[in-house]
Design a protein around this nucleic acid. Sequence first.
DNA 1: GACCACAGTATGGTCTGACCATATCGAGTC
DNA 2: GACTCGATATGGTCAGACCATACTGTGGTC
Lengths: 260, 260
Amino acid sequence: MSGWQPVRRTRAFEDVIARIEERIAGDGLTVGDRLPGERQLAEQLQVSRSSVREAMRVLETLGVVSSQVGRGPDAGAVLTARPAGALTDLLRFHLGLASLSLEEVIDARLMIEQWSAARAAGHGADLSALSDALERMDRAATAEDFVEHDTAFHVAIAEASGNRLIAAMMRSLRDSVRRYAIEAVERLGDTGGLMTDHHLIRQAIASGNPSEASAAVETHLRRAYPDIFRAPVTSGPPGADDRGRGEDQARSEDRGRADG
Amino acid sequence: MSGWQPVRRTRAFEDVIARIEERIAGDGLTVGDRLPGERQLAEQLQVSRSSVREAMRVLETLGVVSSQVGRGPDAGAVLTARPAGALTDLLRFHLGLASLSLEEVIDARLMIEQWSAARAAGHGADLSALSDALERMDRAATAEDFVEHDTAFHVAIAEASGNRLIAAMMRSLRDSVRRYAIEAVERLGDTGGLMTDHHLIRQAIASGNPSEASAAVETHLRRAYPDIFRAPVTSGPPGADDRGRGEDQARSEDRGRADG
DNA sequence: GACCACAGTATGGTCTGACCATATCGAGTC
DNA sequence: GACTCGATATGGTCAGACCATACTGTGGTC
């Protein structure tokens, strides 16, 4: 009687999630469809309404459903497609927990943005969103305002790549580090250099030059985050020495906090 | 009396999440720390235990806490750092909902993997995990087995880049398309070509040649997913014509999956 | 003293039933 | 036709109970 695998206890709400996922993947359900009400779902799946609600919270967190109170066609739980919100929350929390560092996030942003810019330059993409964002940045009065339209500019680049996953990642990366971006702009004081970069990026994409677009993006991020890109980015990421462990090994014995 | 912004109703569990996030970001809590019990938290925050539980489900989904029943040091809700699990669920659901296509996911994987391989080649990374995975792939009897160690190989490349966010993304991308990867291997029949690619990738990284590593990765993915990379990847992503819309506009009219 | 059996207890997991807030629907009225 | 107002269906919240689990401490046994 040994060697038995400790069967992972399945919780009721996990069953509910699995059943809903079955319906989505198996047949039928797609974005815009409504799920049964919580009470009805509870009765159908023979669980309590509490368990159904916990399942709904999970699905809502994943950006898969959206719940509306009241009555009518829009009420209830509706299948949606909002991957970016979940990613943003995830990044924000894990930045706070220091299970991700700002360096890693900015570094990932450089990867995504270089790739997006090169991809956008490779095919004739609609760049009107870029131009709009540039104009709005010119008229921005505060750092918050500037960063808002700056984010729109960079997200537009990712969207111009044509890959929605990449675009969602870009949006989340920007949203999760919003306050750091505002600090960076305030620290720089003058946004003239950033705007010069922006126009160079736009021109490179418009003229269909992928490598030039990629280079312009790198120049831009180096200017915005000089502290993070002290060393050449192509010769090693920040803190590459003690990494490479599985994510589950992070435990309290090896945490080193900066505060007192 | 017009122009009022419809104040977004705050739900009780959202308050709970916000309070916990405050504690994390503000001061104190890091990975390994325990949160108060659900009953205690409910009393402290003046909400019902149900609301606390819904908040816990959200945090658990984001990979921020892990709940254990029973008693003792490990019981209760403990702060963790598991970003990959949340990403995997997110990708799986949104693939099912067709708010993301397999093409986009594979495309993102190419981006991440080329970047990781180049980065790993740029600095002397520990490649023993790569060698282990290669050996295990040689001994694999089934497609499932092969894909498992193949995933380990490619995740190890991402981990060798030193960026935990990138590594988490790689792991999630692979886990979420696991069944497609198995299908691809079964369709290929012979894994000899894939293994040749693997050794070339490893050699390029070991010899510190970033561009060669990047090229080897592209060759590999083109072999594994010939249908997806019909056109040269540098000249435009799949389905780039009708994209670039906001994520919320994704509707069912434009989904096109690759499998049968 | 070392070991073991068992009651105690704190934890999350689940269920029930109730009530509230909101938004639509629909019958009735002007 | 336009308006009023109750009926109703929905999610949101709460209180209280019970269960399963797993550690803790106590006391007995050897």
